[in-house]
């Protein structure tokens, strides 16, 4: 794959000396949607934080558009076009919806076209305009998730990292979130999607890797979406 957006090679992450991720190797091509699923504690979130430069790799390397990220600060990585929608959304509940979105603009390389992008996310998630003067904390869980994704999108990322966007949401709400993500993907944004609820990721991503105990177990295609047995087996290492 010559046009790789993200390459992770033999990545090992440790917390207090204990490995959280071991020998992870994966690639995400430009415009591709790749899923990463696995049980709690499999090292999925740690991997995303390592890409963002928040967790230093113990071993291995991470490359963005062919260039290693080692030693680059989070603020620089964000400005080279990577945005994360963090687990549990982490919106600022005391700030208004509009202020939350303005914080998303911080990571842009340039302010040109910012208002177009704000319009675009408002079209995708009307709540960010309708409730713009309200405190973000009063939004429902699904609306907060939409705000978190909108906040990441206004940074105009080339690579969008999503950490458990379905967490704590009712299935109907999750469907809405994934419909919006489909539009984001149609806009040409590369996506690495981490999910604990594997059925959402497998059906959505071009391919989905299963991570368990810090290691890659197998790779699933959308065709496996209905095959819950295979997914379950991969989870529990059978």
């Amino acid at each position: 794959m010559p046009d790789a957006m993200l390459q992770i090679r033999d990545l090992e992450l440790r917390y207090a000396g204990v490995p959280a991720v071991r020998g992870l190797t994966l690639e995400v091509g430009r415009g591709e949607v790749v899923g990463l699923v696995g049980p709690n504690g499999a090292g999925k979130s740690s991997t995303l934080l390592a890409i963002m430069g928040m967790v230093p790799p113990y071993r291995g390397e991470i490359l963005l558009e062919g260039r290693p990220l080692a030693g680059r600060k989070t603020e620089a990585i964000v400005r080279s076009g990577v945005a994360l929608v963090p687990e549990r959304r982490h919106i600022f509940p005391e700030l208004t919806v509009e202020e939350n979105l303005r914080l998303g603009l911080v990571g842009r390389r340039s302010r040109d076209g910012a208002s177009d992008d704000l319009d675009r996310v408002a079209a995708l998630f009307p709540v960010v305009r309708d409730a713009r003067h309200r405190a973000a904390g009063v939004l429902s869980g699904g609306q907060q998730q939409q705000l978190a994704i909108a906040r990441a999108l206004v940074a105009r990322p080339d690579l969008l990292l999503l950490d458990e966007p379905s967490l704590g949401l009712a299935p109907a709400v999750v469907d809405g979130v994934f419909e919006a993500l489909a539009e984001v993907r149609a806009g040409g944004v590369t996506i690495l999607l981490v999910e604990q609820r594997a059925q959402f990721a497998v059906g959505f991503a071009d391919r989905t890797h299963v991570l368990a105990n810090g290691e890659l177990r197998l790779t699933l295609s959308p065709a496996d979406a209905g095959d819950s047995e295979r997914i379950t087996a991969a989870y529990f290492g059978a």
């Binding site: 989070t74 964000v78 400005r79 963090p86």
Partner: peptide
């Protein structure tokens, strides 16, 4: 309010 999230936003 939340230094980590602010950092993640750049």
């Amino acid at each position: 309010m939340d230094a980590t999230t602010a950092q993640l936003l750049g």
